[in-house]
Design a protein around this nucleic acid. Structure first.
Length: 446
RNA sequence: CGGGGCAUGGCGCAGUCUGGUAGCGCACCUGGUUUGGGACCAGGGGGUCGCAGGUUCAAAUCCUGCUGCCCCGACCA
């Protein structure tokens, strides 16, 4: 993409409404634009990142055997009346009426709808286990939206729903999601800590929030330093095998949000040098809720004995829009965003230091073309801006690898390459600049 | 929903106390000089001052009502 043709409304100054760093940087880098309180438009640069986050989430869900579908944003109220949540959900649910005065709502979540779909088609335990998910926009009319897309009213959510014949089956489904979540966040360069969360009326140990540590986090969290260093399973993980030991390993160490925090247990179980108390951002939440919906909504399957029983369900959420902000919170510096390779909007930034100069243009166009042929997503700064502005822009939008081409280097057949994360710069031949860029771009896919 | 604050061109702000017909920086357009870390000169375009009433010869400025947005709290992917 040529920067001269790209829609990239960069802001030089900090917008006054943005308090936290991710919100500030997303606005400044031209990723999002606020349209109303808690409602954002995703601009081309932001959408690229969101798309990559979504792709990683999707790949890791698919790996577990979960199946993607797409449910609508607008739902009939009937389903919610049936489950009993139409009244319970309160002001957070955006209620609307269609032209026939039928009660509808903009979905804040999809338990009811997916349960309805399930009961309409599944009759036998033989069809289980089943896990259906979608990645869809949700609307929750938050009391106080804040922090940009971190706590917005309209947000993208991956929500998966598992159906099993009994609690043991549900645990296996739960464990799959647990492991998939570890991998999903790790691929985005995040260290997410599964923390025991409030599991509501069902009780038990099957509810975890996945938290990443950040000073701007909304909740206070406590954990054993050891969980931060636990290796995340590789892509060879066997989802059909027994995942319990792996899950146990992660959950054996103390890790809790402030709601469930027990200071005495924390002090007893974790030696002082390993105690971490920090702030965290919730990027995912998984839980088992048994027959809470299947019972009132009569989602039942026949068991081997021919008797019908309500299915055991779980639901598993990840907020891709929030994740984009969380990644920035975890990875930025004074100059701007530092994208992990796996979610960067462009793999490579190519800077033409003297756009309009025949020789320089020719050399840059050549590199740009070759990068394109190699499948490397490149943002080519072919504008007439001054060098300082170009560098500032490239650093702000955080592209991991940059190639800087100017007449001075070209005279000796060289260009400068820069690694955004470390700030390392090196003067190399044009050929090796190209080779390095391709290498870096290929390596980005975990 | 309680408490605090803001609303003036795309962005950041001054002007409001003390009414006199709107200004600065950045951005944008034209021409020129520049070009290796956010250039300079000259010229130019763009704002019914959030909305609605009121006071006044005259309102961005004073009065009343409303709306939007931000921050702090209780709730949440």
């Amino acid at each position: 993409m040529r920067l001269s043709r790209y829609f990239l409304p960069i802001l030089k100054e900090d917008p006054k409404e943005a308090e936290i760093v991710s919100h500030r940087l997303m606005l400044r880098a031209g990723m999002i634009r606020q349209e109303a309180s808690g409602i954002y438009a995703w601009l081309p640069l932001g959408l690229r990142v969101l798309g990559k986050v979504e792709r990683i989430v999707r790949e890791e869900q698919d790996r577990t055997g979960a199946m993607e579908l797409l449910m609508p944003t607008i739902q009939p109220a009937d389903l919610w009346i049936e489950s009993g949540r139409y009244n319970d959900y309160g002001q957070e649910m955006l209620r609307i009426r269609d032209r026939h005065d039928r009660a509808m709502l903009y979905g804040p979540t999809n338990e009811e709808m997916v349960t309805e779909m399930f009961r309409a088609s599944v009759r036998s335990y033989r069809d289980l286990p089943l896990n259906l998910y979608h990645i869809q926009w949700k609307f929750r009319d938050e009391v106080r939206p804040r922090f940009g897309v971190m706590r917005s009213r309209e947000f993208l959510m991956k929500d998966a729903y598992s159906f099993d014949v009994d609690k043991e089956g549900a645990r296996r489904s739960y464990n799959k999601m647990f492991v998939a979540y570890l991998r999903t966040f790790a691929r985005m360069g995040l260290t997410a800590i599964p923390m025991q969360a409030d599991s509501g009326p069902i009780g038990g140990d099957m509810s975890h929030e996945f938290i990443i540590l950040a000073t701007t986090g909304e909740s206070e969290v406590f954990c054993d330093r050891a969980v931060l260093d636990m290796p995340v399973p590789g892509e060879d993980v066997d989802y059909e095998g027994d995942l319990q030991p792996l899950v146990d390993k992660f959950t054996s160490r103390y890790a809790s949000t402030d709601e469930k925090h027990d200071p005495e247990e924390f002090a007893r179980e974790v030696s002082e040098d390993r105690r971490v108390s920090a702030r965290g951002i919730e990027v995912g939440h998984i839980f088992y809720f048994g027959t809470k919906y299947s019972e009132p909504m009569k989602a039942v399957v026949a068991g081997p004995d021919g008797m019908e029983k309500p299915v055991h369900m779980g639901s598993y959420g990840i907020g891709p829009t929030r994740l984009v902000a969380a990644i920035i919170e975890a990875s930025h510096d004074d100059a701007g965003i530092v994208w992990p390779g796996s979610v960067t909007p462009f793999d490579v930034g190519l800077i033409n230091l003297k756009a309009g100069d025949e020789t320089t243009d020719e050399a840059c166009d050549d590199i740009y073309g070759k990068l394109g042929n190699a499948g490397v997503d490149t943002l080519y700064d072919d504008t007439g801006d001054r060098a300082g502005a170009k560098f500032a822009t490239m650093d702000l939008i955080g592209l991991p690898f940059q190639i800087v081409v100017g007449p001075r280097g070209l005279a000796g057949g060289t260009a400068e390459i820069k690694v955004r994360a470390t700030g390392e710069r090196e003067t190399v031949s044009l050929e090796s600049a190209l080779a390095r860029a391709i290498e870096v771009a290929k390596g980005a896919t975990f």
